[in-house]
Design a protein around this nucleic acid. Structure first.
Lengths: 153, 153
DNA sequence: GGAAATTCATTCGTATGCAAATGATATCAA
DNA sequence: TTGATATCATTTGCATACGAATGAATTTCC
């Protein structure tokens, strides 16, 4: 290798390196991984319901009968997604559907007795899921993290 | 309303209320929403590539040719998911596949020239996506949040 | 050397997640 | 009142995401 070649190589190696984009440091990538980890913890405690299905039941428990669309808004799901979730909960007898008497566009959703029993039973497990998800953090860190995460969401 | 009724109502209102499970305060629910917001910001800047597709290209840029499975490990995707992502990138001519000469099980993936050009062009947009995702936080909050999020992921 | 265990990749089935198009109904406004 | 607009729900198409099953190739270990 000639002297000129060595010089050239040094220049290349020390170039500003626009490559300093590290995927593993980007917030979007880490958010995706943190979300994956949570879903995995969820599944290990509640195997027969997905987080979106649980969210639908938990929110219905809070607000009672609502329209499908309104429920979607409350649990951050678009109309197409919430339909699938509700369809599967209905197929399992956990929610029931009825038509709105006045506004014929609306499809009302409510918990069945089985649905209410199920969500009441699952709430303690859900608390444990939250606890385990946050286990890597101290109490003070949990407070900080939750506050900042909420600002992003 | 009788005095007994008032008494009864007070008792109910002050009951321990195991209902104090608020979906919107649970870390899993907020994580899901924060992730949704990020994906939406991503799509507004990079419309013709999804975050997983971008992740695959960005990681290939870092590490060069690897096996499909190894790439999946690096970007936190299981084998079934990474296959679909790579298939779509291949169909668009951004990556190319070849068989490993020695280990016949392995399918090697690498960027094409077009793929390298594309990812080099997109990196600046990705920086902006990260910036916009974190925009609700101050510089100090960003440092704290990123550190804690990484502990969870 | 050869059986057992492991790894790599593929396929199938199910469940989000969202954009876009469609149809039915309701509301608003000229 | 009626025509434009908005809302509610559904459907289709595409893209993750992952468990489970399968088959091929490799590695381990006796």
């Amino acid at each position: 290798m000639s002297g000129e070649d060595n010089l050239l190589k040094l220049v290349e190696v020390e170039a500003p390196d626009d490559q300093d984009y590290l995927l593993q440091d980007q917030v979007g990538f880490i958010l995706r991984k943190a979300h994956q980890r949570h879903v995995s913890i969820f599944a290990s405690h509640i195997g027969d319901l997905t987080p979106p299905q649980f969210a639908a039941l938990a929110k219905l428990r809070d607000v009672g009968e609502t329209s499908q669309n309104q429920l979607g808004t409350l649990i951050a799901m678009d109309a197409a997604t919430v339909k699938g979730v509700i369809d599967r909960l209905k197929a399992r007898g956990l929610v029931e559907l009825s038509k709105h008497e006045v506004d014929k566009r609306r499809l009302l959703v409510d918990l069945t007795t089985e649905g209410r029993d199920a969500i009441d039973r699952l709430i303690p497990l859900a608390r444990e899921i939250t606890r385990e998800t946050l286990a890597p953090l101290s109490a003070k860190e949990i407070a900080t993290f939750t506050r900042l995460l909420a600002k992003l969401a």
